[in-house]
Design a protein around this nucleic acid. Sequence first.
DNA 1: CATGTTAACTTAACAGCGTTAGGCGTCCAA
DNA 2: TTGGACGCCTAACGCTGTTAAGTTAACATG
Lengths: 210, 210
Amino acid sequence: MPRPSTPLLSQTGIRAAALEIIDRDGLDGLSMRKLAAALGVSAPALYFHYPTKERLLDDVASEIMEKVDVSAFGRGWREGLLGWARSYRAALAEHPNIVPFLAHGPGQRDASLRRADAIHGGLVAAGWSPRDATMIGASTKYLVIGAAMGSFSRGFVDDVQVYLDRYPALGDAHRLREHADAVDRDSFEFALLTFVDGLAIRLSSPAGAS
Amino acid sequence: MPRPSTPLLSQTGIRAAALEIIDRDGLDGLSMRKLAAALGVSAPALYFHYPTKERLLDDVASEIMEKVDVSAFGRGWREGLLGWARSYRAALAEHPNIVPFLAHGPGQRDASLRRADAIHGGLVAAGWSPRDATMIGASTKYLVIGAAMGSFSRGFVDDVQVYLDRYPALGDAHRLREHADAVDRDSFEFALLTFVDGLAIRLSSPAGAS
DNA sequence: CATGTTAACTTAACAGCGTTAGGCGTCCAA
DNA sequence: TTGGACGCCTAACGCTGTTAAGTTAACATG
């Protein structure tokens, strides 16, 4: 079956199928053969639309990152930072399995740069020094990525015991894991608000406070 | 060559060689065949000492985590938190390539639980509620893991432009990458101190402040 | 309308992966 | 002295990402 009248594949379709597999089977669960099978096609056919698996994943990651919203910087640095961080985390939490990949390289260069500029610009416009703005941006990213990694892997299960006081009613691991998402969400919000509160101190006090 | 008089392999030796390869060639650069070759042995020989590659990596990760120091909680929650976070980050920064694996599952159960208990206990003893203690522990972990992921991958290169104001002298990507470590270290320290400052507010004000 | 090129797929194959099966000789205990 | 476990070996399985070569439909051009 060569050259069908209507193309069987498209970059959009490939990305969608890939993301579906990743969400369902994990990042390691995605193979080119499995992806091709899901699309009713043989594996090498994919290479006519994406030069490599990594490029495909780059595109999938970029697609996810497009949901990150930096528009709130128009309402002040505090709102801007909170809005950015929350939409960032929400975007990653929707597809936790791709986070390890996403955290290991930039996707589309243009879009990320535009975002970085908006964040940095918004902070500087609010009175932060460029150096502080850089570090605030990086710090916020740390929080988001760290939280996303946590929710990616229920690997923070070493904290089982620690979770118990938060939800003292439950003793079995099943319901515990069920509520781990809530713990993650609460903790992220806690971390973010605490960090922003700490920032407020720094901004109000003269330079070189700490 | 069957059954040599002195065993060629040991778990310790295997771990050391594995970590060396990971540090040099990255996590994906470690294969059982390559590891075996480095030890002057054939690949299946490794399976007499480790049942699986994942178990081996678990052990390597645990070994790294053993350098994390929670003893500073004896000198108050602030010092405890700072000491823990810094030693944690330092341990990961020494072997950035293993961070993605390390962040995806707990290693030795005993050791991590002991650490988690020390952290949680130290916070509660200092007056934090168990719920807050849980979230503080999680938040700090977010910061460390996020920062470690950032230094693992020079993947935050989308921030190239943002870095420029921090080190305005350099324009080429080479020296920029060179200084990226410094930016990461500064940003982590900034994030950690800011977060702890924010915590101090919360502790001094009545419950349910935010 | 015939022709040549390109597009979009196919099957076959390569090297490398983690891992298992089976063989072989050397060491240790009885 | 014999038996068995130990610690390695080679061979092989099914998987991976990717490349090569073949096939034919669609499209552009004379």
